[in-house]
Structure formats: C-alpha cells, structure tokens
Amino acid sequence: MELITTLINGLSLGGIYAMIALGYTMVYGIAKMLNFAHGDIIMVGGYTILVFLNLTGSPILATCFAIAFCVMLGVLVEKLAYKPLRGSSPLAVLITAIGVSYLLQSLAQILFGSASKMVNVGYLDSLSFGGITVQGYTVFTLACSIVVMICLTLFIKCTRLGKAMLAVSEDRGAAQLMGVNVNRIITITFVIGSALAALAGLCTLMKAPTISSTFGSMPGIKAFTAAVIGGIGSIPGAMLGGILLGVVESICNRVSSIAPYTDAIEFGILIVILLIRPTGFLGKKRREKV
C-alpha cells in the first residue's frame, strides 16, 4: 500500500517536472536555445497567483491571471532578449538567459522582499480508495499534467501549426521554404512553455504553500535534468524524463536512509544516462548541416 501511495505521489511530482520540462524541450527543439529563465517563469506565476488571490479571493481566477501574465512575460522576454540574438553564438544566448533569470529573481525580491510568503491556494480533500489515501493536490496535479500532455500531443500531431513546429524543429531553413513563419512558431512555443510553467507554479504551491524569489530554481533545474534524460528536443522524452525523475525522487524520499541524498541520486542518474546514451532516452542524433 505504502509503495502504491509513493508511486502515485511520484507520478504526480513527475507530472509537475514534465510540465516544466516540456517548456525547456520545446524551446530547445524549436528556437535551439536553452532558456535558463524558464524556471523563474514558474516563480513569476507563483507570485502572480499570490497577488491575484489577495485581490480576487478566487484561486481559479488567480491561476487564469497567472497563466495570462506568464504568457505575456515569456513572449516579451523572447522578443526583447532572445530574438535580437538569433543567429549569434549559442553561448551569448545562454548567458542572456541566465541574465534574464537573475533579473526576474531580483525584481521579485524588490517587489515582494526576500522573505518567503505564504500562498494559500486552497485545500482539496484527500481521496481514499481500497485502503490507499492520496492527497487532493496529488490527484489534481496528476490529472492536470495528464490533460496537458494529451492536449499537447494532439496539438503537435494533429494540427497544421503543430506540424509546422516539428518542421521548424527539424530544419528551420526548409520550414521557411514551405512558407512557415519561424518567428511566429517560436512565439507560440514560448506561449505554450510559459503557460505550462504557470500551471506548474500552481501545482507546486498546492503542495508547499510558500514562495520566495528562488521558488522556481530547483524545480527548473530538476525539470531541465528530466528534459535532458528524456532527450532534449523530444516532447515525449520530456514527459518520460519528468515522470521518471518524479518517481525516483518520491521513492528516495520515502526511504529514510537515502532521503538526504535524493538530489544527488537524481543528478547522478543524469550523469549515468549521459554517459551511456548522450542523446537521452528519446533524443535523436542530429546530423550536422553545413
């Protein structure tokens, strides 16, 4: 019973990681950059929920506002910080992304102070079935991430825009020759990634209702790890990597003798997988084009 509960908790945590990892992996696949400010979008989402929760009193409204705000922020960051660097060295873009990350964290400290704040997004009753008790937020997060993953998969597989995204990800120049507006596709990618980050922020707050300016850092790094384990650039890879990491973390935390080493074990898995399979589970070897 204990094992099943742990597994469900792990899947739920993995769902959060997967939602964040999707943002990393899609931006990497399509814009060919590592957006290290992605984790901080989660933090901005969390603070937006805090602000609008105080204003409206409704967690649902606050979440909607947070999603909208994060989408706007994500698009704005892309337009102002990343777009002017398109075509320049990947290192310049990477450093810019790290800069954006610090900028967002510092802004949060200026606006909300450096102390953690409580965010009470409400409580969902825990569920019991067949002797297993699962927390309400666990079920909510799991459901949320499953819906997100199904919708995203359908969007990519079945719509004209989704296929254009795959095309841009595989060969940007050829996609342009098909008439695909690459800038627009990149914007859409940031819209999706930022919306998922806001949602991940909500789920994280339901689990642990405190927020500070580094709220998104650890989930961001874990999700990035998940994206790399799954194969960065691959959408199913991000889902797989996220869920795997969530389950591992949940199991490690359950076993008291190894619980203190949970993070080390997770990043250790990353190292081992990169040694055995440098492209991650579902990543493809890309041929270099001249």
Binding site: K163, E170, A174, L177
Partner: peptide, 11 residues
C-alpha cells in the same frame, strides 16, 4: 527544392 532535398525526415 533545396540542395540535398531537406525533406522532414521524422515526419
């Protein structure tokens, strides 16, 4: 039709 075809291999 670009040089080297450049079809989308994964689609």
């Amino acid at each position: 039709v670009p040089e080297g075809r450049r079809i989308f291999q994964e689609l």
